[in-house]
């Protein structure tokens, strides 16, 4: 406390020599704000304005359209499968990476990052190559009457691949920063592995998990490229929300397209809000742990 106060005083005194003149600061802030407004807020506002162009009635009507409803259902199903899968994988992988030393650790980290570095279209094509009719497993799958490409399983597979890194990437640095002493302490006190996870590790990483899940979910619902390649665009059956938006737009039903798009925009806003809250909470836990050092 004492030190903090002294430092603050010192900063105030030294403020004039260390920071830029006022007009430079205002200029920088203004430029940043204009940029944000132009490229982020304006389009967002445009989406909602266009969606509600023909009134609430038309807006709701567009959303009630059977093909759109089916797209919403498919998107929700996809997210409902992908997010728990990647949540499980993310926790397992980051636990292994942060708490144990083993050979090939850095290779595993690189592998987890792979979906970030590959274009989503390529991710989709990989599955077409493997499971498609001309692909490696295509003939066998057809013989056994299993449909993966141009069907729901393909969409889920491609989405899982694309959203693979989100939870793990969020947790690895967090868990590494927290070290493993608390877990070791729990073990010496007689806790089992599961008790250690749920009573010691989980409370320390829960905000990081929430953050990762939110990002993972947003991407799972919004993914276009990879899903577009494997879906086949069958109306009312293999179209997700983003694909439906594109189809509607290409058919010049602008109001309907923007109405559906507004759902994704809403999702983005919710994601942002939860993300900010989670980040704030996480910052708190990290500060506490730093103080403890």
């Amino acid at each position: 406390m004492q030190v903090g106060r002294v430092l603050k005083k010192h900063n105030q005194r030294g403020g004039g020599s260390t920071s830029e003149p006022a007009w430079v600061r205002y200029l920088l802030v203004t430029v940043a704000l204009i940029f944000l407004a132009l490229f982020l807020l304006l389009p967002l506002a445009a989406v909602f304005a266009q969606a509600l162009d023909k009134g609430w009635e038309a807006y709701l009507e567009a959303l009630k359209e059977p093909d759109t409803l089916s797209a919403i259902r498919l998107t929700l199903t996809t997210a409902a499968v992908c997010v728990p899968l990647n949540l499980f994988f993310g926790i397992v992988a980051s636990w292994a990476i942060a708490k144990f030393n083993f050979r090939g650790k850095s290779f595993l980290i690189t592998l987890i990052d792979l979906p970030f570095s590959v274009s989503p279209v390529v991710s989709g094509l990989i599955y077409v190559l493997i499971f498609g009719l001309q692909g490696w497993l295509g003939p066998w799958l057809q013989d056994h009457d299993i449909k993966i490409i141009f069907a729901v399983p393909g969409i889920i597979l491609a989405t899982v691949f694309v959203t693979f890194p989100f939870v793990a990437r969020e947790l690895i640095p967090l868990m590494e920063a927290q070290g493993r002493e608390e877990e070791e302490a729990a073990l010496t006190l007689g806790a089992s592995g599961l008790q250690t996870f749920f009573r010691v590790t989980f409370p320390n990483i829960k905000w990081g998990i929430l953050y990762g899940v939110i990002l993972c979910n947003a991407r799972a619902m919004g993914e276009f490229g990879a899903v577009s390649v494997v879906s086949g665009h069958v109306r009312g059956s293999t179209n997700t929300i983003p694909l439906q938006v594109e189809i509607l737009y290409n058919e010049y039903s602008y109001a309907a397209a923007f109405a559906v798009a507004s759902l994704l925009a809403l999702l983005a806003l919710v994601t942002l809000a939860v993300k900010t809250a989670a980040e704030w909470k996480m910052q708190q836990t990290v500060t506490v742990s730093e103080k403890e050092r």
Binding site: E181, E182, E184, A185, L189, G190, S192
Partner: peptide, 27 residues
């Protein structure tokens, strides 16, 4: 480890930061 009945005290304490003093000792 959990069956050895050892008490271990760490240099950096390794207290459970999300638990109160009471819950730490009772763990």
């Amino acid at each position: 480890v959990k069956d050895r009945q050892v008490g271990f005290v760490f240099q950096h304490y390794a207290l459970f930061r999300h638990m109160t003093v009471f819950d730490n000792i009772a763990f």
